[in-house]
Amino acid sequence: MSTKNSLPDFRNTPIIDQVGVEERVARFTTRSIKKSSKMQGLKMILNMIDLTTLEGKDTEGKVKQMCFKAAHLHDIIPGLPTVAAVCVYPTMVKTAKDALKGTGVKVASVSTAFPSGQSTREVKIADTKFAVENGADEIDMVISRGEFLKGNYEYVFDEIVAIKAACGSARLKVIFETGELSTLDNVRKASDIAMYAGADFIKTSTGKISPAATMPVTLVMLEAIRDYYYKTGRMVGMKPAGGISTSKAAIHYLVMVKETLGGAWLSNEWFRFGASSLANDVLMQIAKETSGVYQSLDYFSKD
């Protein structure tokens, strides 16, 4: 049976018990990550960050400066990785692409009338194509939450299929805006829809709605990825976005990935953090591990 491009069978979608999910999450947060494993984890986190600016007031100047930061996180400490990608609006893709030439840092672009997704399919496809044509390596689309909550799952599914087709070779991340989906059962259902429709990544949030990424939501999505992998053999990536601003929280996410999906997902090919302020906190921790003392925030560049 081909599983490609047909709406998933919801009879196989497990029910989610929120209390149980929260208990499991609490276990991840009691893992004690120290010394060498902390340092290794911190560097891994830096390399998994999608450094993001998604503001109405974004300009080429702002994007260029952020791109420089993406490739030169903290040159005083040698041997640090770059971030995985920068994440910008479609109109900024060209600027970012030029600024990042030769750095290995990818350019991701939000699309499909981000963040609300309230537009026609044609506009969303055009939006996506524009970003891809300008050089986006990755597309972060939003689902139509209104249609989802109406129970119009086929609409959501078809839309993802259409955007995936418009992406060409760019990898597609599908944003659910879990803060608007309200239940973990809905998060699981959206995960299944997106993966069966061809998503390369599933992503929690736009960062514009609170709550954004949480550990329970991410765990439910990781478990959906695991079940889908066992069914189809295809790996799907995960991107929690918004609200993860400390090293400690990010390390808890790594623990969760490691213990839910195993080592294969512990690279920026399969796991990303969507964040704007996380990088500097991680850098501060790395500097502290290296020198033994905390430094003031003024020693870490804000771009």
Binding site: I33, K35, K38, Q40, G41, Y229, K258, G262
Partner: peptide, 14 residues
């Protein structure tokens, strides 16, 4: 198809 939980990232003794 199977998951591999042995990773390069191990927890240091705590």
């Amino acid at each position: 198809i199977g998951l591999d939980f042995k990773t390069d990232w191990a927890y240091a003794p705590a």
